[in-house]
Design a protein around this nucleic acid. Structure first.
Length: 265
DNA sequence: ATGTCAGCGACACGCTGA
């Protein structure tokens, strides 16, 4: 079985690449982030032609997550348990954003997650990010009550260690590498899941994101922020895991590359 | 290289978010 996660930075803008990628990599389950469309606007017909069912959760311009599966897609859950919302400057009340969707795909329980960016240290969005990660940990704890293989995959917007960015000295005072963020991420380990560390197909560290600007990809100025967590039944079934950096090449790529995990399941 | 993209409102391009 093959499962993957990919922040596509707009499923509409990436549709030709998504269709091509699905037909060549043939994952059984694909978690998407930043679909940037409403649930009802997801191009389900195009992926249905390739044999995939779709569970999407989006509201439009920003965020949005989805799960594609060709091995079944049931027991959907949109949003985390007790998920915090974000209060935009022009909003009267905090709004829940489409950042997490869970589903059961064959033998797997799967969550596709898009953790808030945080913007700047001390920003309200940064506080929201930390609270959101804690809510994810609490949701994972509840999900672990079942014994099925469980995986939580997506764009975590946190580099787990200093070695997971191209040059840690460039990140002083910035988000994604702070102790607070890493502590919040660690709540997942405490909840009972651990990370699958993928192979790099080139260079030392399997980066998953490279900024569009400044030729960051060819210069390998990347970050490893797209992560795959699982319980023991999931991680123990791993036969391979790697970052598909080929998908970051060429014309009109996403700024993220997919992470692929192969399982003996 | 202040170096890129994507979506939106509104139909030109500035704004927002990443």
């Amino acid at each position: 079985m093959r499962i993957a996660t990919w922040n596509v930075n707009s499923v509409s803008a990436r549709l030709p690449r998504l269709v091509d990628w699905l037909s060549t990599r043939e994952p059984n389950v694909l978690c998407l982030q930043e679909i940037k469309c409403a649930t009802e606007s997801f191009p389900i017909d195009e992926v249905a032609e390739l044999g995939y069912e779709v569970a999407a959760y989006g509201t439009g311009r920003w965020n949005g997550v989805a799960i594609l599966s060709n091995i079944g897609l049931v027991d959907l859950q949109r949003g985390l348990h007790d998920e915090p919302g974000f209060q935009a400057d022009d909003a009267l009340v905090p709004a829940t954003e489409p950042r997490a969707i869970g589903a059961t795909c064959g033998p797997l329980r799967v969550w596709s997650v898009y953790v808030p960016n945080g913007r700047e240290i001390g920003h309200a969005h940064y506080t929201y990010k930390l609270a959101w990660l804690r809510a994810l940990g609490a949701t994972v704890e509840r999900e672990l009550a079942a014994d099925a293989p469980l995986s939580v995959l997506g764009d975590f917007n946190v580099a787990p260690t200093d070695g997971d960015v191209w040059d840690i000295s460039q990140f002083t005072g910035y988000t994604h590498v702070t102790q607070d963020e890493r502590d919040a991420l660690h709540a997942l380990d405490e909840a009972g899941v651990s990370e699958i560390y993928p192979r790099a197909l080139k260079y030392e560290v399997p980066f998953t994101y490279w900024d569009y600007r400044g030729g960051a990809f060819p210069r390998n100025m990347g970050m490893r922020i797209d992560l795959v967590y699982g319980n023991a039944p999931f991680t123990g079934a791993r036969s391979d895991a790697y970052v598909d950096r080929e998908a970051r090449k060429g014309k009109s790529p996403s700024d993220h590359a997919p992470v692929i995990v192969d399982l003996d399941l």
